[in-house]
């Protein structure tokens, strides 16, 4: 039980570091740590498939993509100008108001039931694969089309167009 609270503390700590780190590379590395704590949360919930997918897709693919983009952009100097102090205060205040509103409204619910894993093989690959390929077969196929179109769109957006540059 205390494992959850320790990992939850680490998640919140690292996610605060993500938005407060000055250097974007440090920000990405803290985001890797945050996603690693999320993977531990999934393991604690016995969602082993999601833990592995989170580990491979998020930490392995998406964040490496972020790092590569940052390398392409090559922010050699401290390029980010800081916002005015009042705007920062307003931003923290706005986010804090959202957190307080959500948490205090949830407080009214009182003590909820504990999360009990009724079916131990709920999050295993075998069970999830059966659900995915029976009930959710059409969304699965549509998501493959989505990924293909996203790949084509990304290549189209990121390639240099020499002909159109000349007409500017």
């Amino acid at each position: 039980m205390s494992t959850f609270y320790f990992i939850a503390f680490l998640s919140i700590f690292f996610s605060i570091l993500v938005i407060s780190a000055k250097n974007p590379v440090h920000s990405i590395l803290y985001l890797v740590l945050t996603f690693f704590t999320f993977t531990i949360h999934y393991i604690l919930l016995n969602a082993q498939f999601l833990a592995v997918v989170n580990f491979i897709v998020y930490m392995g693919a998406i964040l490496v993509l972020f790092l590569y983009t940052l390398m392409l952009i090559n922010l050699n100097k401290e390029a980010e100008p800081v916002k005015p102090f009042m705007v920062k205060i307003a931003a923290v205040f706005g986010g804090g108001i959202l957190a307080v509103a959500l948490v205090s409204s949830l407080k009214l619910l009182g003590v909820s039931d504990p999360v009990v894993l009724k079916n131990p093989d709920l999050g295993l690959v075998k069970n999830l694969g059966k659900v995915l390929f029976n009930e959710f077969l059409l969304p699965f196929e549509i998501s493959s089309v989505l990924l293909l179109s996203a790949m084509v769109g990304a290549v189209l957006l990121a390639t240099k167009e020499k002909e159109t540059k000349a007409t500017f």
Binding site: F4, S15, V18, A90, V92, A99, V103, L106, S112
Partner: peptide, 28 residues
């Protein structure tokens, strides 16, 4: 070990991290 954690605490954790994300969008 997870079985004693109430559902509310998961909602709290997610709400706090979501708010931190909103704060980051507004702040940076």
């Amino acid at each position: 070990t997870i079985q004693a954690v109430p559902l509310n605490h998961y909602i709290f954790l997610s709400a706090i991290i979501f708010s931190i994300g909103v704060m980051g969008v507004l702040l940076r």
